[in-house]
Write a protein that binds this DNA or RNA. Sequence first.
DNA 1: CAGCATCCAGCTTGATACTG
DNA 2: CAGTATCAAGCTGGATGCTG
Lengths: 138, 138
Amino acid sequence: METPACTEAEAHESESEQPFDVFARACPSRETLEHVTGRWGSLTVGALREGPCRFNELRRRVEGVSEKMLSQTLHALERDGIVNREAQPTNPPRVDYELTPLGIEVADRLLALIHHLEGNMSAVLTARATYDETRGGR
Amino acid sequence: METPACTEAEAHESESEQPFDVFARACPSRETLEHVTGRWGSLTVGALREGPCRFNELRRRVEGVSEKMLSQTLHALERDGIVNREAQPTNPPRVDYELTPLGIEVADRLLALIHHLEGNMSAVLTARATYDETRGGR
DNA sequence: CAGCATCCAGCTTGATACTG
DNA sequence: CAGTATCAAGCTGGATGCTG
């Protein structure tokens, strides 16, 4: 079997040529990927997969997020068409956030990754211990 | 190692109580998720899915990454047991990086997300245009 | 409740230079 | 080639205060 070491030029064209390539420096898909997988983006999208949610409820689901960061994250996701914002002009105000159809597809793939990672954390922790031991904790 | 609050017995399918929960503030799985989905982590893991790769080759695959960030990213991934580093004490030095079995599983889920996003970028771009238009382009 | 504006500490990042 | 060391700059993100 041929070992496919890096063939620089067409390394990531395993499939038909795609118009958007995250590995390319200037591709907008990289920005969207970062919005979705970012520190708070991934948790926000994951939390919204459980159903529509109001702002402060979301803050409770995603432990540790500040309102500023949640607000910022939500705006980026809304702009990318991942999240839908529904505000009711009532008093007190009520705003519900929910995933768009695209957002649901993205969330499912993200959650597959998250759950896989969660299910393998003992292996990760073991690997870390081994690594730290080998390197003497440097 | 310390005894985790729970066991990782059936982490995958269990939805009620999971031993590791990224949504919890102090869960180590959140760190690993960030290593994997981080700005350079996701691209590095994705690039390595193509096969083993040397340091500078990897730099070329992941456009825009500095050597410092790549080095740092690889260390974090190696420590988490996602990436395996194989150094040969030759001259000039040759070091190959490759995904571990766990890394491959993680990469496949990550790539599913990436490819899905790449395939829907036109919708994202449209959503952005609409959003910017509605908000007066601010 | 739902959020925006501001301040600012500190972490992240990119250049640059240097080692084996 | 495969990194490490160092430093300045800039961005991130938390705390606080205010609005509708």
